[in-house]
């Protein structure tokens, strides 16, 4: 589904990703872990097409198409979803309105008829139940005045609404207490099918207790330095990143 080959990228002339290789197949859950500054969030941003970053080499194929050729909204239309580490606030725009626009724009991209108000409401109700989010939250201005947990729950709700093929969770656990993590993770698990995939980006292992990965990769200094199964995450939790740092300092 996703095939990253020797991906190199940076910002303002500074290299951050120095050759990433990663393959994700439908139904899989991958986790990328790594210390601060290793390039985790850069990877998420580059995949979603954030303009500040410049791709300097390598390729990314998404369902057989060149992902890097697409604008951010085209990538969304292709089925890529990024759950933001810091969801953006838009005063005066309700989540409901925002999602109605997004769902229909994505449908348009896919050549589908737009949902009318009734169908949209039906879909929304279904997904609200799935991710356990209140209607009150969705009628408020997008993310404005939301707590950290509410923002992340809103991200998961949006993910459910847009039914992506690949969902990237960028530090979804950061700043959340364990209950909030559990709720968010529950939502993600509820959306998983054999046809879609999840890429979890995290600093800590604790989220992986709830979203269990098939593969764990360690990102350090712009490269994946180690890959394994979920046991690798536990191991990292034990030893910390210092071991990785000293092992790969000069890599």
């Amino acid at each position: 589904m996703l095939s990253i080959k020797n991906l190199q990228a940076g910002i303002e002339g500074k290299d951050i990703l120095k050759g990433i290789n990663l393959d994700i197949k439908p139904g899989e859950v991958h986790a990328i872990m790594g210390p601060n500054g290793s390039g985790k969030s850069t990877l998420a941003s580059v995949l979603a097409g954030r303009q500040d970053y410049e791709v300097t080499g390598g390729s990314v194929e998404f369902n057989g198409k060149d992902l890097l050729e697409f604008s951010p909204e085209q990538r969304a239309g292709e089925g890529l979803f990024l759950a933001f580490q810091y969801p953006v606030e838009i005063p005066g725009l309700s989540t409901v309105n925002f999602m109605k626009t997004a769902v229909n724009e994505v449908r348009k991209y896919r050549g589908e008829e737009p949902l009318d108000a009734v169908a949209f409401l039906k879909l929304m109700k279904e997904k609200m139940a799935l991710v356990n989010i209140s209607k009150e939250l969705l009628t408020r201005s997008l993310n404005e005045g939301f707590s950290g947990g509410e923002k992340k729950r809103n991200e998961v709700f949006q993910m459910a609404m847009l039914e992506p093929k690949l969902a990237i969770l960028d530090e979804t656990d950061s700043g959340l207490d364990i209950d909030a993590i559990r709720i968010a993770a529950h939502g993600v698990n509820a959306i998983r099918t054999k046809d879609n995939a999840v890429l979890v980006i995290t600093h800590y292992q604790r989220l992986l207790d709830y979203i269990v990965p098939d593969f764990v990769h360690v990102l350090y200094n712009g490269r994946i330095v180690k890959s394994g199964t979920k046991e690798l995450a536990l191991e990292l939790e034990e030893t910390g990143y210092d071991q990785i740092k000293s092992d790969y300092q000069f890599a």
Partner: peptide, 13 residues
């Protein structure tokens, strides 16, 4: 720009 990118990421031009 972050607001626009956020919308773009949700498929909105």
């Amino acid at each position: 720009e972050d607001q626009i990118f956020y919308c773009n990421q949700r498929g909105i031009d």
